[in-house]
């Protein structure tokens, strides 16, 4: 008996695979209008000598290589080195570049979580995110739900993400723009005294740097 997939959203006429599963889309769904536009724009740019195929492939590789691990390394350094932390809070872009992360001309601002203040980042307009340090944003970050609720009811959003803060904690929501993006410097968890930077970095999740999470405890 094949598995039931009543809510499967990609119903095609492909039938089921030999193992009884619906075939998954694999870049081979019917060509869309927008995909045609992407192909056309790319080809025209290449033909007119404005861009090369290699540049495009390279840019995709650069973007794919960026991940929250980069931000976690920056946070771990800030936890370990007070001077670096001061530089990070003064200019997060320069501090990231100092660690060898090529984040381009991105204007990055680090905001620190403390015992009394918790910070959360959002882009109410669209999807601005410290992408040149952390990679592309998670899908939920770009949704209307998150973008509106993060400012309207941040405490409820945080609870959904499993972050329960006392009412006495002040919550600050930072609205990112194309020119100014934020990253959270999470509070260093208890019980991490003497831990080395690479071990500390493993406690720093993507969500902790968005503010929808806290750093893990060891």
């Amino acid at each position: 008996m094949p598995h039931d997939h009543p809510n499967h959203s990609h119903d095609h006429d492909h039938g089921l695979s030999p193992s009884g599963h619906p075939y998954r889309a694999d870049n081979d769904e019917p060509l869309t209008y927008w995909q045609r536009m992407e192909i056309a724009v790319r080809e025209l740019l290449i033909e007119k000598g404005r861009i090369t195929a290699a540049e495009i492939a390279n840019q995709i590789e650069v973007m794919d290589a960026r991940s929250p691990a980069n931000g976690a390394a920056v946070v771990a350094r800030a936890w370990s080195d007070p001077d670096f932390k001061a530089r990070l809070l003064a200019d997060a872009g320069a501090a990231s570049r100092e660690m060898g992360f090529d984040i381009g001309p991105l204007n990055l601002i680090a905001v620190e979580n403390t015992d009394t203040t918790h910070n959360l980042i959002v882009c109410t307009l669209c999807s601005c995110y410290p992408r040149n340090l952390l990679g592309l944003p998670p899908d939920w970050y770009k949704t209307r739900e998150y973008r509106s609720r993060a400012v309207r009811e941040p405490r409820a959003v945080l609870r959904e993400f499993g972050v329960n803060l006392p009412d006495s904690t002040r919550i600050r929501v930072h609205d990112s723009t194309a020119d100014m993006r934020y990253i959270i410097l999470p509070a260093r968890p208890a019980g991490t005294d003497g831990m080395a930077e690479p071990d500390l970095a493993r406690l720093v999740t993507r969500d902790a740097m968005i503010g929808t999470g806290l750093a893990r405890t060891p």
Binding site: L45, R50, I51, I56, I60, L136, D139, W140, T143
Partner: peptide, 25 residues
């Protein structure tokens, strides 16, 4: 909403946006 792997065409749109911006178009 779950995260999803971006399709190649989406990554290319992203790359075109970044590169064309960097080139000042």
């Amino acid at each position: 909403m779950d995260g999803h792997d971006f399709a190649l065409w989406e990554k290319r749109v992203d790359a075109l946006m970044v590169l064309c911006g960097a080139k000042g178009f």
